[in-house]
Design a protein around this nucleic acid. Structure first.
Ligand code: ZN
Ligand code: ZN
Ligand code: ZN
Ligand code: ZN
Lengths: 163, 163
DNA sequence: CTATGTTATGTTATAATATAACATTATTTG
DNA sequence: CAAATAATGTTATATTATAACATAACATAG
């Protein structure tokens, strides 16, 4: 049904093993190669930081990490890298809390639903065709051409409810 | 099916007639009364500005308008009023473009879908039970307790596509 | 392998959005 | 009225993001 994806067992790229991160970065490199785009050291570094984060991270958090790594970095450094990664579908941006997270399935474009815990920040990326179909239907009814759907659900994860 | 609502003919409170605005403000006053909350002059003024706006407006735009009206105003002035109106369900906040718009159906709480034109800014509030049901189902599957769902669809309205 | 154009990054400054903290005023309640 | 509570005023600052221009790295043609 979908093409092979090393992350097919994951609903999110957060908290992956080192090996999973390595595979993810290689996939990103391949994808950029295929599109004749440069997967530069900076872009790779930012993607790795996003990928290794336990939760979606803010741009200035990434900036701090870049600086700590010894690299010269200012806000445009990280925002430009993030913009590139967003355009290529390698990361998502959560507008409800201004954070970024690695995409669980960068191979194919998709509308995603994010379940964002307001307590611990843990965020689950899920792909829900029912929601997408319903939004498509709704858009058609209003003669509206969808460019991007941000579906961000805030609430409490099971762990934070202790249940 | 739903209780009476003077806005039942509207999918959004933007671009209403003066009379519709007046009715809306009266409803807001009644609602605050019922909840034993103060619908102060500032809160009323901010709600009216949001309601009269042709499109969702930013906080600093509202701030400018407040200043122009002669009132002493600083950022907290408008953010506090907006926070109150948000809590009471009288306005919505769009996190994708940091704007605020009057709620089309403040009488009953609801999950809403917003169709936001990226060209002209025109925004349609629609209530889609299919989306809500699907999100509820998805949340249950992950044992996730929804607090708020932000469903913001960016795209081009029919007018901006010239079709 | 240079010259030249293009893409990416460095750097400084600033814009846009939002909140903290504390003083003052208005409103409610006893 | 006095005391408590709620709302607003005021100043400063935090957070998020972009503009503008300089430099460096890379690609491609001659
Ligand atoms: Zn994704
Ligand atoms: Zn949690
Ligand atoms: Zn509404
Ligand atoms: Zn439009």
């Amino acid at each position: 049904m979908t093409e092979h994806c090393s992350h097919s067992d994951l609903t999110s790229c957060t908290q992956p093993s080192s090996e999973q991160v390595a595979i993810f970065l290689q996939q990103a490199a391949d994808l950029c190669d295929k599109r004749n785009l440069r997967f530069t050291r900076l872009r790779k570094q930012v993607l790795e930081l996003v990928c290794r984060a336990e939760q979606p991270v803010g741009a200035y958090h990434l900036l701090d990490e870049l600086k700590q790594s010894g690299r010269s970095a200012a806000p445009p450094t990280v925002y430009r890298a993030l913009d590139f990664l967003l355009e290529q579908g390698l990361v998502h941006r959560l507008s409800t809390n201004n954070t970024y997270l690695a995409c669980a399935h960068p191979q194919h474009p998709h509308g995603a639903v994010f379940l964002v815990c307001s307590e611990c920040g843990h965020t689950q990326e899920v792909h829900n065709e029912g929601v997408n179909d319903e939004l498509d239907r709704q858009a058609k009814q209003f003669d509206f051409a969808i460019q991007h759907a941000a579906v961000e659900v805030t609430g409490l994860c099971s762990r934070c409810r202790g249940s």
